[in-house]
């Protein structure tokens, strides 16, 4: 992980400072809209970081990762529906539920490799998606409105206040970036990265890689559950669309766009992806017509994503 300072580091530092300053800049420019845009970007970045942990560093291409966004979100929505609004209950339930689901899915998926892994994660996520669609009590397709954001019960963290909501997400983002870094440079992370490049050899050394991969899968699920918790609170709304397979595809996209297996790639990718779609969609409603081919070109020509172009050496080696 040790490398010289590159433009990639400068961009990462700039982005973090930008995220910190957005509420002030937005009020100075009188464009309050950007606060919600960047809050959304940061939530997506947390989800993309969690995916990067297993996909970038562990080689597990999960095509159903948005399912944990949905589970985390529905934990908030359903508990709030039953008048349980305490964050001290909602947050552990959201993350615990994601841990259990990720454990079960991981046990099934990690028996397979390659194409099989991609398709099984997709299919299992679809299963939960259809479960949420068929839950008539909780709004089916239409989703659930959340009247009250999670209550932490102290005077300091009041999520109903827009600025507090924003900086709670910002703090969570910093925490996840830090955690990702600690995991990747630890012995655990080294096993994970080693098993990505040659699983058989790592096993031959005597390390049971299956357990490490499963643990990483669960950690990623829980982290994405946190993103779901934040998203539900931010939007005051949950619906099956949160775990539509297009969302999982977009998560992969952000991670690759930013640069897989780089620490700040997911954040960069989330910023680029969401700003680009925001801008393109104001130009034409048929923006997917441009965006689709753009994606293909990125895949074909810009290997290593934005971070790769900026000279980060951590990108896929």
């Amino acid at each position: 992980m040790r490398s010289q300072l590159t433009p990639a580091h400068a961009v990462s530092a700039l982005l973090i400072s930008l995220c910190a300053a957005v509420p002030y800049l937005a009020s100075a420019l009188d464009e309050p809209f950007y606060v919600i845009v960047f809050a959304r970007i940061m939530v997506w970045a947390i989800a993309a970081i969690s995916l990067n942990l297993i996909m970038g560093f562990g080689g597990m291409i999960s095509f159903g990762h948005a399912v944990y966004l949905g589970i985390g979100g529905y934990a908030v929505g359903i508990l709030a529906f039953h008048d349980i609004t305490s964050a001290w209950i909602q947050l552990p339930v959201a993350m615990g539920l994601c841990a259990v689901v990720a454990l079960v899915f991981g046990v099934i998926c990690l028996r397979t490799r390659g194409i099989y892994f991609i398709m099984i994660t997709l299919a299992l996520a679809q299963m939960v998606f259809f479960l949420s669609v068929s839950a008539e009590r909780y709004g089916s397709d239409d989703g659930l409105n959340i009247l009250w954001r999670s209550e932490f019960g102290s005077g300091i963290i009041d999520l109903e206040d827009g600025a507090v909501m924003y900086y709670t997400i910002f703090a969570a983002l910093l925490g996840c970036l830090l955690l990702q870094w600690r995991i990747v440079v630890s012995r655990f992370g080294m096993v994970l990265r080693a098993s990505q490049s040659n699983d058989t050899r790592v096993q031959a050394v005597g390390i049971p890689t299956y357990r490490y991969r499963l643990a990483a899968f669960v950690i990623a699920g829980v982290m994405c559950g946190l993103a779901g918790f934040l998203q539900a609170n931010l939007e005051r709304f949950v619906s099956p669309d949160m775990m539509n397979w297009h969302r999982s595809g977009e998560l992969i996209l952000m991670t690759v766009l930013g640069g897989t297996a780089t620490l700040f790639g997911p954040l960069v990718g989330a910023v680029v992806f969401l700003l680009l779609s925001e801008i393109l969609s104001t130009i034409t409603i048929h923006w997917h017509l441009v965006f689709g081919p753009f994606l293909i070109l990125v895949v074909l020509f810009a290997r290593g994503g934005v971070m790769g172009l900026l000279g980060s050496r951590a990108a896929r080696d």
Partner: peptide
């Protein structure tokens, strides 16, 4: 996966 996802869009 990514390139064909782009094709779908």
């Amino acid at each position: 996966v990514l390139a064909t996802f782009g094709l779908i869009l």
